[in-house]
Amino acid sequence: MPWADDVVAGFRSQQVRLVVYVADKVLVPVLDRIAADPGQFRLVPLTREEEGIGVLAGAFFGGMRGALLMQSSGFGNTLNGLASLAIPYQVGFPMLISVRGALGETNKAQVPMGRAMPELLASLGLPRYDLDRPETVESVTRGATRQAFTTGRPVALLLSSLLTGGKGGGF
C-alpha cells in the first residue's frame, strides 16, 4: 500500500510522536506501519474519538505532536471537543479520516455523517484536504500536518475510497 507509506512518511517528517485512534478497516495499513515503528510512534487505542481530542490537547500543551485517526462516522463523536477545546485553545493536530458513506458504500448508516462531515468541518472553520491521488499523498499529508502544528488548528485529511479502494478493498 504505497499510499499508507506516504501518509506515515508525511507524519514522520513533521515529528508526529503520538497517534491516537479508533480503528477502521481502511486505516489498517497505516496502523500497521505506525505499530511497526515504536521508536518514532506511540500508538494509543481510544474508547471514543472525542477522548482523542483531549489526549492530543494535553500532549500538545506538553510539547508532543500527535495525530488522530478515525472513520467519518467517528468524526461525529469529536465535535464538542473540537469546538470547545481544540479551537479556542488553538491545539493543532492532523485528523486522518477514512471517508465512509461515499463511493462504493454498502452501509446506509454510514451515509449521513459521511455527507455531513465536509460541511461540519467548514462550519467549524477547519481546513480540509483530500487524499485521493497517489502522487500527492505524501506532500498533502506533510503540508497539512505542518500547517496544523504551526497554526495551532486541527486539520482534516480525508482518505478517499478512490485512493484506498474503500472497506472492501475495491469497488
Binding site: 477522548e51 483531549g54 489526549v55 492530543l56 500538545f60 500543551f61 506538553g62 508532543m64 500527535g66
Partner: peptide, 10 residues
C-alpha cells in the same frame, strides 16, 4: 484525557 496526554508528553 487532557491530563493523560500531558502525562505522556511530560
Amino acid at each position: 484525557s487532557v491530563g493523560l496526554g500531558l502525562a505522556m508528553a511530560r
